Structure formats: structure tokens, C-alpha cells
Amino acid sequence: MQLRFLLFCSAAALMACCRHAEAQEPPCYVTDEDVTCSASATLLVMEDFLKQLSSSNGVTEYNKFGLYDNHVVQHLSAGLLADLQFSVIEVMSCPNLTKVDDFLGASSASLKNLSMHHNSLTEVPQLTAPALQNLRLYQTDTRVVVQRSALQGMPSIPCSFLQEIRMESASVMPLAFYDLKLLKNLYVYNLAADPLLLAGSFHFSSPSLSYVFLASGHAFTGEAEPGTYDGFPSGSRLWIQKTPKFSADLFFNLLSRGASVESPEPVTCDCHVAWIRLSTFMPQAKVRCQTSMWPIDLSAVDEANFKDCGSICSV
């Protein structure tokens, strides 16, 4: 009886082991038009798999490459994707990934959508991707620096196709987005600065620019150097969560070109906003004023409050 029980237990354990082995995903695999590398893939495994795939079956065009939930990979090497062409690339939840070289390979010419979420990059990678239309780079624990040099590789032809960027936990350097001539929308969540935004950080040269959304991190007060915001075309809009003041040296260039600005957090409406309240710019600026009771719109503040503010008001 005891022997029969032991044999039964051994057989059950073997079957469970086999089922577990069958359930495990291979490090990299192909399904339909997608190529996926999972949690167990090392950089060497990915390099070998992708090189063999690009030369084995004659198929080089796929829809998506994905690297997910991987704690092993720390670096994406140059030319990693070899001769394979993807239009979508997702690199997500790789907490030890800190370095990304220009890994696109042949996908440099085909990539349209790039998403890199919850990794540990400290800088936006310098990639050559002239066909890129949408860039998503979300991080929570590690701040990522946006240098102009990183995005200069996106428009390696005179007209970049990059139209929308969404980032989280970003620190933006001067002229970071200046070379993107077709950029329409920019969203930065948890915007960071040490201790203030530098002149030219949000200076654009895209006539297509429509909307810039800047949500501040908890430690950022919104302080900015004169000339931080520039190049906004007529009809475009800046939404900025925090700014301690609406001074002319920050926002005159924006409003004078026909753009608008809005901030939901109230400010002290003294003479630094008189140039808006007493000018034709008033409809373009949504400013909330702190009062002893509750915030009110600047448009609701009597013009007489600014009668002693000087000639700068008569713009």
C-alpha cells in the first residue's frame, strides 16, 4: 500500500513538473506578425534569436517587437534588431535597463510608434528614427533627461514625422524639442527641474504645434528663466500646472504670436499680471487669482487694481 502511494505521488509530481515546463514561455518567440522577448531573455539570447530570425525564413517585416517584464537586461546594444523591420516597438517593465544604444537596426526606416515604460533610463536614448510618429517614455522612480542631441536623430531628414511625445519624470534641457518640425502635441507628466526651467527649454520651431501640457512634480514650483517658452505658433496652447508668476519675460513672446496659456493653480495677482489684464492679451490667458476667500479668474479682477503698475501694462 505504501509503495503504491509513493508511486502515485511520484507520477503526479512528474506530470505537474511537465505541465509547468510546457507552460513556460521561451525567451523569444514569434506569434503572427509580432516578435516577443520575455522575462528570461538575456541580451545575448536576444541578439542570437533576432539575427537567426532575420536570415532563416526570408521574412524581415513584422508589426511589433516587445520586451516585457525583464529583470535581466541592462543594455540594448547597437543594431540589436538586425535586418528586421518593425513599425511598433515596446520595451516595458525592465527595471535594470539603464542604457539604450541605437538598437533599431533596419527598423530605423520603419519605426512609427515607440513606447518605453517603467525602465530605469537616465536619458532619452539617441535613436535614428526619421519615420517615428509617436514617442512614449514613462518612468516613475528614475528621472530621465531630455537632451537636444537625443531627438536630433529622429528628424535625420529635413522633415521629421514625429508628431506626439508623452513623457513622465522628465527633466528638459534647452532646445530639446526644437528640431521636431512637425511636432503637434507634447505631454510631460511629473516635470522636474533643479531648481528651475532653463531658458529655451520649451522653445519650438514647429508650425504644426497645437498643445503643450506640463504637469509638475511635487518638488517643482514652476520657477523658470526668462525665455523658457518660445516659438508657439498662433492658435497653439500651453497648459502648465504650476507657475509662480505670469511675468512678461516668460509669456510675452507666446501671447504676442497668438498662442494661449492656462494654469489651474492660483497666483498672487499683483503688478506682474497687469500687462495681461490691461491689454488685448486677456482672452488668451487663463489666470486664476488667489484671494482671501477663493480663487477667481483674472478677468474678474477690477482694472482699477492695476492703475499704479506702470507703462508695461499698455501692451
Rank of each mutant, 00 (worst) to 15 (best):
M15D: 03
C17M: 11
C17E: 07
C18A: 13
C18L: 13
R19S: 11
R19G: 04
R19P: 00
R19M: 14
H20A: 15
H20F: 14
H20T: 11
H20S: 14
E22A: 14
A23D: 14
A23E: 14
A23Y: 13
A23N: 10
Q24M: 15
E25K: 14
P26I: 10
P26G: 07
P26Y: 05
P27M: 05
P27L: 05
Y29K: 10
Y29I: 07
V30M: 04
V30W: 01
V30S: 01
T31S: 12
T31Y: 11
D34Q: 07
D34T: 09
D34H: 10
D34N: 15
D34F: 08
V35S: 02
T36D: 06
C37A: 06
C37E: 10
S38F: 06
A39R: 08
S40D: 14
S40E: 14
S40Y: 05
S40K: 09
A41M: 01
T42D: 08
T42Y: 05
L44I: 09
L44H: 04
V45T: 11
V45F: 01
M46D: 02
M46L: 04
E47T: 14
D48S: 13
D48Y: 09
K51Q: 13
K51S: 14
K51F: 12
K51P: 00
Q52L: 11
L53W: 03
S54H: 03
S55G: 05
S55T: 12
S56H: 09
S56I: 06
S56L: 09
N57V: 05
G58L: 05
G58R: 03
V59S: 02
T60L: 05
E61I: 06
E61S: 05
Y62R: 01
Y62N: 02
N63A: 09
N63C: 03
N63M: 06
N63P: 00
N63T: 12
K64S: 15
F65Q: 06
F65D: 09
G66Y: 03
G66M: 08
L67R: 02
L67H: 04
L67E: 04
Y68G: 01
Y68K: 02
D69K: 11
N70W: 04
N70H: 04
N70I: 07
H71Y: 12
H71M: 10
H71C: 03
H71W: 06
V73S: 00
V73Y: 00
V73L: 02
Q74A: 12
Q74G: 15
H75W: 04
H75N: 03
H75E: 09
H75I: 00
L76E: 09
S77M: 12
S77W: 05
A78K: 07
A78S: 09
A78Y: 01
A78T: 08
G79E: 04
G79I: 07
L80C: 09
L81F: 09
A82L: 01
A82Y: 07
A82Q: 11
A82R: 10
D83Y: 03
D83M: 05
D83A: 11
L84C: 02
Q85G: 15
Q85T: 13
Q85R: 15
F86M: 02
S87M: 10
S87F: 13
S87I: 14
S87C: 09
S87Y: 11
S87G: 05
S87D: 13
V88F: 08
V88D: 06
V88M: 06
